[in-house]
Structure formats: C-alpha cells, structure tokens
Write a protein that binds this DNA or RNA. Structure first.
Lengths: 234, 234
DNA sequence: ACCTACATTTGACTCAAGTCAAAGACCTGC
DNA sequence: GCAGGTCTTTGACTTGAGTCAAATGTAGGT
C-alpha cells in the first residue's frame, strides 16, 4: 500500500506525542500496518478481558476508558481526546485489556497492531523510553486516583475543577476563571467514583457556599482560595 | 542507615526476576553501581515527592509502598518481599516518587541508580520489554484496586483472602485451606482501604457466617464457595 | 409543534463504615 | 513478675453517600 501525501492515517500518527520524533520512514512503515476505524457513539472499542492485539490513537471524537465494578457501576479511569494514545500499556502484560474503552461521541481511532510497536521498539530505543514514561504516568495517575477516594465527593469535585482549569487555561487561574466541563455530569460522576445524584448535590453545595457559579457545563470559579482549600482538606 | 559495597549484591541481582536473563558481564556492571542498604523497621526508604534517583530490589525483610491520603490515613498499594523490585516505574516520569516506601520489619534493599538502568536498556532491548511488562502489571493491579473500592469491606477481605490463598498454596485451594496473613491486621486494613476497627468487624462477620476460622494470623477457609460468592458480589 | 429519550435536580430513606472510647490480649525489656 | 507498649476487639454514636422515586428541563427527530 502506497502512502499518499494526504494519507489521514499518517497525519494522525504524526500528531501523536507518543510517536513524535519518529523518522518519516518509520512513520510510513507504521502507517502501513495501521487501520482507521470509525466508532459510533456508545460503541465499545474493546472490552475488559478482550485479547489485546494492539493499541489505539484517537483521531477525532471523545472516548472513555473505564472499569466495571462488581456492583455494576462503572469507574471511568480516563477520558481520551484527539492525539492521545490508549491501551498501549496492555500490550506488555497478560494478553487481555484490563479495562474497557467506549466512544462518548462518534469517534475515529487508529489501530496499531502489537507487532508494529514491538518492531519499532527493537529498532529505536527512544520509543521504549517514551512508552515507559507514558506507562509511568499512568501509574502516577492511578495512584493519585486511589488517594482521591479518601476524600468526600465535594472535595473530589473541587480537585477536578482545579485540575481542569489548570489544563484548559493555565495562565488564567484566578477568581473569575471559567472551566468548561468536557463531559456531561453523569460521566463526570463516574469519573469521580460516585453517582449523578450525589455529584449534583456536590455542585449545589459549592454553588451555595459561593465557591463556584454553574451555568450548564460552564463553571465560573468565584473563590479560588476556598476551592483550593476544599480540594486539599476533607 | 548503613551503606556498604559488598559481594552479596550480585547474588541479589541474580535472583531478581526483573533482571533474569542478563549476561554475567551486564550483571557485574550493574552490581558495581549498586548499593546495599539496611533499613530499620519503620524507616522510610523514600518518601512521596522525593527525587527519584534510582530504583530498589528487596534483598530481605518486608516493606510496604503506600500513599498518604489527604485526611492523613495511608493507603497501602503493595507489600514487597525478597527478590521483588520497586520504584522502577518512577524513573521514567516526573522526577519524584509518587508514593512512599517504608520497612515493615528491618530489611535490606539494593539501590540501583537510574543511570545504570538507562544504560542497560540502551544495550539490551529485552530489558525494556521486561520493564514495560512490569509497569503494565502495575497498571493492571492499580485499576483492579480501584474497582475493589466499590465493594463493601467484607467483600474486599474475602477477595484478599482468596488471592492470598492462591498465592501461597495454589494447589491446596479447597475447603480447609489455610492462609497465613503476611502482615498484621492494622497494615492489612490500610491495604484494603479501611481502618483496623472495621476490618476487625469484617473478620468477625466472616467468622460468624461460618465462612472462615480465625486463629491470630492463621486463617482457615471453611466454605470456599461462600467466600468466592462474597468476593465477587457486593 | 409534538413526542420520546436523556440529563439534571430534589426529597426521603437507609445503611455501611468511620470516629471516639474503652477494655482485654500479647509481647518485650527491665 | 511487673510496667509500658502495641495490637485487636467491641460498643455506641454520627454521617456521608447510595437508592428509590418523582418532577423538571433539554435536545433531537419526525
């Protein structure tokens, strides 16, 4: 298969941080093995327990990686946006994915078979280091998530809003800063390890305490100091 | 704290699964950079936030890796026994350890500086794969741990007892199988994300329901089916 | 406009589990 | 043997948060 100048797959690969620094030739080889897949809203990309045949890079849309808890609820581990890779860690242990991935809206993902990655690592050590760094980041994220569980829901929410504000507009972090929720409140509840009703009450409490202002998915931070206070203390 | 350069280091390295398959010469080079350290009971090997200068292999004793939650409790992520490596994941992201490590009893650990590992990876790709696999295992463990939180404490305890029974004597998993707790109940509580009092009540409940029998740290499984039931259901 | 599906909020109730307090068991060193 | 420490258990109390139920809002699709 010849790679065209406008090959959408190659474009996606080029934009993925995980693969940055790859030579055009390596990129081309990888693109030759990759598959572009359209995932309708609500469809699973893979399910927990599926054989891990490769990893993915998000080319458009919005997805979630989650784990189903024994009582049927779902705990969202991570949201995925264009350019981000996911499930790469699963390729190196067991043979199955430890969590499921599902499209929150109709999305496009590029699939890269395990073989392609393995070949790449053997050829380029720096890819191994990037993978190790990415995987280490996951470990850090998950350990942090575990520690979060000890906090009450309003505190978890405060922590999330702070992190999002910092991620969206790091320079504008002050009273009056605005945060746009990237997902609806039901999904956010699952990410914070709770249910929609409890999250709703947490929003109401922050609002009543004058810490934030809520207009649909648009949050305004009215009292940054108080928000920080809540986020650290229980 | 005593740090000494000695021969036994090479023995420890040879016995570590993570380094298995290394040529004697590589092993020797690594041993030359390694330091053996004696850690008295209760002493920290490193604290969350410390600069990650290297990783460790346990050469004797018993340690825990834990994260301190905002409200001051500690969540134990993993217990560490001889031969196991720890903190290797921290070397590839940020510059700091995401959790703390402390000796549960007086222990010996071998410290291997980051530089040694990096050099090794560049020379031998299979080490990179081993590290990736190890790190992936961590991710799996942590995602499982997160899902565990949705269960009630007695269920978490049941799950732990099953896992331990399987680890200690895989062949003898049947009614009447015995499990010896590797740590005291206070530490076990922290590992299960709860406090000593609640864990004590959970043990009492399993005992009263005739599922297990408890003699100090020696647990006898009386009704394996019921234990399995509890572990999966809420 | 209208209808259906989904998202959000609020109230009422219940319960698991954390806190505080205290007692007993078990070591270890003096 | 005794004193001081840690570990474990039990009781009484409090509360955060999940469940059930219902009302309201919102967005598409026909």
């Amino acid at each position: 298969m010849t790679i065209k100048r406008t090959d959408p797959v190659a474009d996606v690969l080029r934009s993925a941080p995980m693969l940055s620094g790859l030579e055009p030739l390596d990129l081309q080889e990888l693109a030759g093995m990759a598959l572009l897949r359209e995932v309708p809203r609500g469809q699973l990309v893979f399910a927990e327990g599926d054989e891990a045949l490769g990893f993915f890079i998000c080319a458009g849309g919005k997805l979630k990686v989650f784990k189903t808890t024994p009582d049927g609820r779902e705990q969202i581990l991570h949201f995925i946006f264009p350019g981000e890779s996911f499930a790469e860690v699963a390729l190196f242990t067991g043979r199955t994915y430890p969590a499921s991935a599902q499209a929150l809206e109709t999305s496009r993902v590029v699939f890269i078979p395990r073989e392609g990655l393995v070949r790449l690592i053997k050829k380029r050590t720096d890819i191994a280091f990037k993978l190790l760094a990415g995987s280490a980041l996951w470990v850090r994220r998950l350990t942090d998530l575990i520690a979060e569980y000890a906090k009450a829901v309003p505190s978890r929410l405060a922590g999330y809003l702070l992190a999002e504000a910092l991620r969206q507009r790091p320079t504008a972090l002050a009273d009056g800063a605005r945060v746009r929720l990237v997902v609806n409140k039901g999904e956010l509840a699952a990410h914070l390890g709770t249910v929609a009703e409890t999250l709703s009450r947490a929003f109401a409490r922050l609002r009543d305490d004058g810490v934030i202002e809520v207009e649909e998915r648009e949050i305004t931070i009215k009292d940054l100091a108080a928000l920080r206070d809540l986020a650290s203390g229980p």
